[in-house]
Design a protein around this nucleic acid. Structure first.
Lengths: 197, 197
DNA sequence: GCCCTTAGGCTAATACCGTTAGCCACTGGG
DNA sequence: CCCAGTGGCTAACGGTATTAGCCTAAGGGC
């Protein structure tokens, strides 16, 4: 019989296709095997098991989010950078709502996810450096940013906003809320457009 | 043989105990049956199946959150009410992190959850009325509030805040961020302490 | 061009889960 | 005291992950 020519990479691709099609709960070795045209046990030649596959899918999602967020941040600073990062984050969720549900919330706990999480964190730190935030203040600011954008994203991905009002408008308000909390008290203006590295 | 004296209520109680002990993924009919000292199929006399049990557990969580949030809001208004509501929300998460992961994100979609969701929403609307917010502005404000508090809560419940800085301090900043976004632009003061019903 | 190693597929078998069907005993009311 | 129904049970089925063991296609060394 002709070989299927699978690889760990291809297995994860198929797994993501399953998630996108039928949601995170449908991510099963049997479904992935069916999609790749292979018997279920064959997947073990490429992946240690369902647990590892889940982790690999989460890693992929984390990397993809890191990618788009990083891309949104380059060449921008201050309010514009924060807004771009948040918009990019939401865009990812709108493009891949099912997939987003597998974003790991505590990636630092898993060695496989650690590096990708660090990269995302560094983008945040770089963006916040433009506000003169550092040390503990930067950590608290990043937590506000992360909580706001992830909270909104997870709710929107799950279809949690039922009322008729435009969700994009709500998100604009969220961005403004976060941005305002980064500015020094009493400062209504945008911070220096020339960011710092 | 002596009867176990189960009831739908008791089954949900046991299910919540399972979740609190071993996490949402461990919520299985077999685990609940073991905990209640009954064979697995016996549970079907009280609950339609695993799916319904999950919904009932989610309903319980939603009701509990609604309870503590409502309790926090009574007798308060303005910034104090918003702060109290958010603090109560977080307290629930700290007290029951595993359980919180089953909070339904789109409760309006399920008839069983709809009423409990409505109650929570009404608390939010009442709290925001003290800021003179109504109509679309209130909806956008509620979405900001919900995104911020749920985002923070879900991250904290999952153990997502790895860095050493005090998480409570971060949360205080989150509350301040939300509160500031509710005040009219340029207004640094707290809104009228005399809230409206 | 042949052989031999190995990677990548397979089937068979096990264990655990949810679910359904059908049986039986305890319980409480007439 | 009887009897109907509720709430338990066992048996059986299908789907799932996982392990073991086999077998063959693929590709490099001679």
């Amino acid at each position: 019989m002709a070989r299927a020519g699978l690889s760990p990479r291809a297995v994860v691709d198929a797994a993501i296709a399953v998630v996108d099609a039928d949601g995170p709960a449908a991510l099963t070795l049997a479904a992935v095997a069916a999609r790749t045209g292979v018997a279920t046990p064959s997947l073990y030649k490429h992946v240690a098991g369902l647990g590892e596959l889940r982790t690999l899918v989460s890693l992929r999602v984390l990397e993809e989010v890191g990618e788009v967020v990083n891309a949104a941040a380059v060449g921008r600073s201050g309010d514009a950078a924060v807004a771009a990062v948040m918009q990019a984050w939401r865009r990812y969720v709108l493009d891949h709502p099912r997939r987003y549900m597998l974003l790991p919330l505590a990636p630092h706990a898993d060695p496989m996810l650690e590096a990708a999480a660090k990269r995302l964190l560094e983008v945040f730190f770089a963006v916040l450096a433009g506000y003169g935030l550092g040390g503990a203040d930067a950590v608290h600011a990043i937590r506000r940013l992360r909580a706001a954008v992830h909270g909104f994203a997870s709710l929107e991905a799950a279809g949690g906003f039922a009322m008729a009002e435009d969700v994009g408008t709500s998100f604009d308000g969220l961005v403004e809320m976060v941005v305002a909390s980064l500015r020094p008290p009493g400062d209504q203006a945008h911070p220096a457009v020339v960011g710092r590295r």
